[in-house]
Amino acid sequence: MTINDRQNELIEEFSMFDDWMEKYEYIIDLGKEVTGIADDLKTDDYLVKGCQSRVWLIPSNKSGRVYFDADSDAIITRGLVGMVTRVLSDATPKEILESDLFFVDKIGLKEHLSPTRSNGLVSMIKKIKTYALAYTAKAN
């Protein structure tokens, strides 16, 4: 599946809900399902500087494809970062760098992508792209 396939899959999942309550309940469920990151790995090295909710992100790289694990101390943020890593994991660095994350807007969660929310999501996406760039540089 490509990044866009996975985005469309999420949009499809969310299309079942009519009101914000159901949507948020689903994000919370997703947040609870996220495998997350073991507590001893939640170090400053992996901390994405958000503000209010903390986000940790660990990249890995297997045969030219990049994978991400993420976690947060707030459940809504955890659900959101879970969705982003689900979309962007298992892709090549090039695909990640060229990706356009339209699903957040389509699902109606655009407000969470505003830097003023200071939930760490925007910083995390930036960080993912930085990792992708670093992997590209290494591959070259």
């Binding site: 503000c51 101390d73 707030a74």
Partner: peptide, 21 residues
């Protein structure tokens, strides 16, 4: 154990402005 960010986000949806953090 509910994170203040989570509480604040839902309250905002209900039209209630509180400070969190």
């Amino acid at each position: 154990e509910i994170h203040p960010y989570d509480t604040g986000t839902i309250l905002d949806k209900l039209g209630i402005a509180v400070r969190t953090g």
